[in-house]
């Protein structure tokens, strides 16, 4: 197996474990917050713009620790592909492949730009 592929495989296995951790956080949080008599869908039938920070503040106020745990798990899950790209930048740079490191860095910048849209759009 080529050197780059070998290291990417290690990164992917590491991320696979990350998905399991995120999955456990999400599932635990969902179970904690689960209430069969409560309808979670009616409030979501109309779109309301409510930032992540406001949502978190509401969860803390209402002691909804299950939702806080799930949200942390969801955030961790979203960061995993970003982490993969960051590790790829380092991998290619260390391997002396500066063009590929630059390409991976452009992808990383794109990811950060995309994320920040959620703060101001």
């Amino acid at each position: 197996m080529r050197n780059v592929e070998k290291i990417e495989l290690k990164i992917s296995r590491f991320l696979g474990r990350g998905v399991m951790v995120a999955g456990m956080l999400i599932f635990s949080g969902w179970l904690l917050s689960f209430n069969p008599s409560k309808d979670p869908f009616t409030p979501l039938q109309v779109y309301r713009s409510y930032s992540l920070i406001n949502s978190f503040q509401l969860f803390v106020m209402l002691d909804e620790w299950g939702n806080i745990l799930s949200t942390l798990g969801l955030g961790f899950l979203i960061c995993l592909p970003v982490l993969r790209v960051l590790l790829s930048v380092m991998l290619f740079y260390k391997n002396g492949e500066k063009k590929m490191a630059l390409i991976a860095a452009i992808v990383l910048v794109g990811l950060f730009l995309s994320f920040t849209q959620g703060l101001w759009v």
Binding site: I26, F27, G29, W30, S33, P40, F41, L44, S49, Y50, S51, L52, N54, S55, N67, S70, T71, G73, L74, G75, I78, V82, L111, S114, F115, T116, Q117, G118, L119, V121
Partner: peptide, 15 residues
């Protein structure tokens, strides 16, 4: 990531 920071990923359904 953008939807998450905007608060559109609701744990009640996303989980």
């Amino acid at each position: 990531g953008a939807y998450f920071l905007r608060g559109d990923i609701k744990p009640e359904i996303a989980s």
